[in-house]
Amino acid sequence: MKRALLAVLVLAACQPPPGDAAPAQQTLVFSGVPTASSITTQQTFLPIITMLRRETGVEIRVQEPTTYEALVEGMRDGSIDIGAFGPQSYVVARERGARITPVSAQVKEKGAPPSYRGFGITHPDSGIRSLPDLRGRKVCYADRLSTAGYLYPSAALREIGIDPLRDTVPVFTSGHEATVLAVANKQCDAGFAFDEMVDRHLVERGQIQPGQLVKIWTSGLIPGAPLAVADDLPEPLRQRIVSALQSKATADYLRANGFCQGECPVGDATAWGYSGVDDSLYEPVRAACRRVGWNSCTPG
Rank of each mutant, 00 (worst) to 15 (best):
residue 74 G to D: 05
residue 295 N to Q: 14
residue 272 W to M: 08
residue 156 A to T: 03
residue 285 V to R: 01
residue 3 R to V: 03
residue 254 L to N: 05
residue 92 V to W: 10
residue 47 P to C: 05
residue 161 G to Q: 01
residue 202 L to G: 06
residue 146 S to L: 06
residue 93 A to W: 01
residue 219 S to E: 03
residue 233 L to K: 04
residue 121 I to N: 02
residue 204 E to A: 11
residue 135 R to Y: 06
residue 16 P to E: 15
residue 130 S to P: 09
residue 268 D to S: 03
residue 6 L to Q: 02
residue 257 N to H: 14
residue 234 P to Q: 08
residue 44 T to L: 11
residue 247 S to F: 03
residue 137 R to V: 04
residue 79 S to E: 04
residue 94 R to H: 06
residue 71 L to H: 00
residue 57 G to C: 10
residue 283 E to R: 13
residue 203 V to H: 02
residue 285 V to C: 00
residue 110 K to I: 13
residue 80 I to Y: 04
residue 22 A to H: 14
residue 174 S to F: 14
residue 291 R to Y: 14
residue 298 T to F: 14
residue 90 Y to I: 00
residue 66 T to P: 15
residue 208 I to M: 05
residue 232 D to T: 01
residue 283 E to P: 10
residue 164 P to S: 02
residue 265 P to E: 01
residue 198 V to N: 07
residue 133 D to G: 01
residue 193 A to L: 06
residue 146 S to E: 11
residue 179 T to K: 10
residue 284 P to T: 01
residue 286 R to W: 14
residue 285 V to I: 10
residue 195 D to I: 10
residue 14 C to H: 11
residue 214 V to Y: 07
residue 157 L to N: 03
residue 61 R to A: 14
residue 142 A to H: 09
residue 109 E to S: 14
residue 70 A to H: 13
residue 129 R to P: 07
residue 295 N to G: 15
residue 212 Q to R: 06
residue 114 P to Q: 12
residue 276 G to P: 05
residue 55 E to H: 10
residue 188 C to H: 09
residue 73 E to Y: 06
residue 192 F to S: 09
residue 43 Q to D: 11
residue 53 R to E: 15
residue 139 V to P: 04
residue 94 R to Y: 00
residue 120 G to A: 05
residue 92 V to N: 09
residue 70 A to G: 07
residue 171 V to Y: 13
residue 281 L to D: 09
residue 251 A to S: 12
residue 51 M to T: 04
residue 140 C to E: 12
residue 19 G to T: 06
residue 295 N to T: 15
residue 216 I to E: 14
residue 188 C to Q: 04
residue 256 A to Y: 06
residue 282 Y to S: 00
residue 237 L to H: 07
residue 131 L to M: 03
residue 118 G to R: 10
residue 231 D to A: 06
residue 230 A to R: 11
residue 117 R to M: 11
residue 220 G to I: 05
residue 209 Q to F: 11
residue 114 P to I: 05
residue 264 C to G: 04
residue 294 W to G: 09
residue 5 L to I: 15
residue 71 L to N: 02
residue 71 L to I: 01
residue 64 E to C: 02
residue 265 P to R: 05
residue 142 A to I: 02
residue 245 L to G: 06
residue 208 I to N: 12
residue 29 V to E: 01
residue 31 S to N: 04
residue 15 Q to H: 13
residue 294 W to H: 10
residue 3 R to G: 02
residue 70 A to D: 07
residue 195 D to K: 11
residue 292 V to C: 04
residue 118 G to F: 12
residue 52 L to W: 03
residue 232 D to R: 03
residue 165 L to F: 08
residue 48 I to H: 00
residue 120 G to W: 09
residue 34 P to A: 08
residue 75 M to R: 06
residue 46 L to Q: 12
residue 9 L to R: 13
residue 64 E to L: 01
residue 212 Q to Y: 08
residue 25 Q to A: 15
residue 4 A to V: 08
residue 251 A to L: 02
residue 181 L to E: 01
residue 13 A to Q: 15
residue 246 Q to I: 04
residue 254 L to W: 03
residue 249 A to Y: 09
residue 243 S to Q: 15
residue 90 Y to P: 12
residue 20 D to G: 15
residue 6 L to K: 00
residue 190 A to W: 02
residue 206 G to W: 08
residue 68 Y to F: 15
residue 290 R to Y: 12
residue 292 V to K: 11
residue 60 I to H: 02
residue 216 I to N: 05
residue 109 E to F: 07
residue 293 G to Y: 00
residue 86 G to R: 14
residue 13 A to M: 10
residue 57 G to K: 02
residue 228 A to H: 06
